[in-house]
Amino acid sequence: MKVLVCIKRVPFTGGKMVLAPDAMSLETKHLGFTISPHEECGVEEAVRLIESNKGESVVLTLGPLEAAEQLRDAMALGIDRAIHMQTDGSEWDAGATAAAIVEAIRADEAASGPFDLIFFGNESADSAGFQVGLRVARALDRPCATGLKRVVPADGSVRCEQEVEGGRDVYVLPLPAVVTVREGLNLPRYPSVPGRMRAARKPVATSTPARPKPRLELMRLAVPEGKGKSVQVLGTGPSAAPAVVEMLRKAGVL
């Protein structure tokens, strides 16, 4: 079995969104970086599938040189090798991102055989376009189910469970297929020290695709205004309990 996971490097913002002076990106000087929790679950699932089925797992990203950090993180968890399409860090819209990913997948499949399963996050953490996985699936002419909380491949097909109101909808797709997943799919492991050491030696194939003109074109970012709340401190320590109960009563929850 051969599986691919697509991930995107994003800043780990804290309690507040702060924009860069040109408002085209977030101010990231003091921030660490990560990937979406959805994609973390995709990485974990790919590692588990290869642990139990043998074969090869690959991680792919389109992003700046620094995104090598996220590829190493994925390989530290057990992914075998990486594909890094390097950019200068500027925004690529979803259509352009998908086209570049399709090209990389075609090249890899021509060299080392088809991917049975390709994992995406249901939506990226930052731009949340809800579409790259579906676009890639369409271009490759493969079936795709989205927002999955369970993915079980068996005998040439994959059973996919999607959370909906009142339960789960089940889709059964023939392989090869594309799936987009959500956090809750599994509980990702933490990287081990030996895992990190092995990751440092795993291969990363690089390329530098050209950025096409965006069709969903970012003009600027804005931080929505808060509700302008001002917090009322009801007290300090356990002695605040009567004031809390008074508030609960007034709010009609008691």
Binding site: G226, V231, G237, P238, V245
Partner: peptide
């Protein structure tokens, strides 16, 4: 804590003391 900007009410202190105290007060009520 950043949550204070979004909160309407706050109690400052150790939740391990405050939460049981609120539960006890609700029982009394």
């Amino acid at each position: 804590a950043p949550i204070m900007v979004n909160a309407d009410y706050a109690v400052i202190g150790d939740l391990k003391e405050i939460v049981p105290a609120i539960s006890a007060e609700i029982r009394k009520h």
